[in-house]
Amino acid sequence: MTSPALEVRNLFKSYDEGQIEALRGVDLSIAAGEYVAITGPSGSGKSTLLHMLGGLDSPTTGEVRFRNVSLGSAIDLDTYRSRNVGFIFQAFHLMPTLRAIENVQVPMLGLKPCSFDRAARARELLKEMGLENRMEQYPNQLSAGERQRVAIARALANNPDILLADEPTGNLDSVNSGKIMEILIGIQQKRGMTLIVVTHEDEIAHAAARQVRIRDGKVEA
């Protein structure tokens, strides 16, 4: 039996010296290549769970395992994030001083020593996103939908195994939302990536192979 891509065991996360419990004993297993939507009301712990899965933060107690190896102890979190994970944020979070093609190269600095290879990879990814003629633009010269597509290209820069998207359509209109989800699902199917999306939107949640509903820091049965 193949080990799951990601596994969460009895995960607790609290802040302010235990005063705020964001996650309270979450157990979850996600197979490689699966598309999972994490839903729940505001403040339920969805984003916190996503951060744990992405190695952005460490649990208070419990464990997150990637391919059966414990994050933080057996794998360094920075290395895990750079090689295995691609993040997509609601607010895009592009570097304002860098052009689109340069933004896509940022994750590769330090991993790909040759600047020619970095630029070639960035160009290829932006073409895939339909942004061939927008590569030289700065983020403030792009529409919201274009910015999110640049962010997706950036997330794919190091060919990750897992794509984590935190409300990727939160700042987009319905037309662009549809396009973005089409792109994400297309990537997930074509590349066999594990796609985990945190979302409020029912339409996006229903398109996923599996929904994980979080309420008050726990996974609802």
């Binding site: 992405g54 952005l56 920075d78 290395t79 994030r81 750079s82 090689r83 994970v85 993040f87 944020f89 979070h93 570097m95 940022v106 994750p107 600095l109 330090g110 991993l111 950036r154 190091n158």
Partner: peptide, 12 residues
């Protein structure tokens, strides 16, 4: 924070 999320190490 974005750079760290993209996998940049503390050293970088």
């Amino acid at each position: 924070g974005i750079l760290r999320a993209l996998g940049w190490k503390r050293g970088q």
